[in-house]
């Protein structure tokens, strides 16, 4: 106890060998990020996950922890994404009754709109010379994160690049729905909610719940159906095209 460096060195080494440091840092950044997000007045352009991730990156840089080491420890958290993805089936089932109210427009819109959400981005990026790895990372850009991670891994894309694209898509989709709905004079909250969930995944759905509970329910439905449809369609399409 008398020699400070005598216990700090072993502590640092033992923490580096176990995942607890990575888990504690992630939990801490999550708590701080949520607090900052609420202090900022819950802005759409800075979702809590972005605020928390920026904080955590800064902490890793200051403590000179290698991202590779951090990711190895954080695996103990990310492995839970598997059962968490399965858990999304519960709210999807609970929103299913909304399909009855608007089954025809939903069935006509969903396959085409969810396919085009991926096709537009892949075609534009492809024309601008993006590599297959980048295309695979952009394709699931409108899908909710836990499902999108599974899709990107299947397609051979980069999960971090996909996550960045997902965040930007969520924010841009939310702004586009606001602007375009006014331009097209659409006021039906069910349509606005569905468009927010289909294109803007969890970020759009959060915005829809601000509009109304109805918009939020249709956004949840749009997000869930888009996730399932895209997760089945994209890997098969990529395999078929041979990317």
């Amino acid at each position: 106890m008398t020699d400070v460096s005598g216990w700090w060195q072993p502590l640092q080494e033992s923490l580096a060998a176990s995942p607890m440091l990575a888990i504690a840092l992630t939990l801490g950044a999550y708590a701080c990020g949520s607090w900052v997000f609420h202090r900022l007045g819950s802005p759409i352009w800075a979702p809590p996950v972005l605020v928390s991730a920026m904080l955590l990156s800064a902490v890793l840089a200051v403590l000179t922890i290698e991202f590779r080491d951090y990711r190895a420890g954080a695996q103990w958290l990310t492995v839970l994404l598997g059962p968490a993805t399965v858990a999304l089936g519960v709210p999807l089932y609970q929103q299913m009754h909304h399909i009855r109210a608007l089954w025809r427009p939903i069935l006509c819109t969903l396959p085409l709109a969810a396919t085009l959400a991926a096709v537009y981005a892949v075609v534009i990026a492809g024309l601008l010379g993006a590599t297959p790895e980048v295309l695979a990372s952009l394709a699931p850009k409108s899908v909710t994160a836990p499902i999108a991670i599974g899709i990107t891994e299947q397609l051979g894309g980069s999960v971090p690049l996909m996550m960045g694209g997902l965040l930007i898509t969520g924010v841009v989709a939310t702004l586009c729905v606001d602007v375009l709905a006014r331009w097209l004079a659409i006021t039906d909250e069910r349509i606005l909610g569905f468009a927010l969930g289909l294109n803007g995944h969890a970020i759009g759905t959060a915005r829809a719940f601000e509009l109304s509970a109805t918009a939020g329910a249709f956004a949840s439905l749009g997000m869930g159906l888009t996730g399932v449809f895209t997760a089945i369609f994209l890997p098969l399409a990529f395999r078929w095209i041979g990317l």
Partner: peptide, 25 residues
């Protein structure tokens, strides 16, 4: 390529969704 694909692609897909939903409703 990434930036343009995300911004323009999202604008187009939101427009498509709203137009289809409005048309069929």
């Amino acid at each position: 390529a990434v930036g343009v694909a995300l911004a323009a692609g999202t604008l187009l897909s939101v427009l498509t969704t709203l137009w289809l939903m409005q048309r069929f409703t």
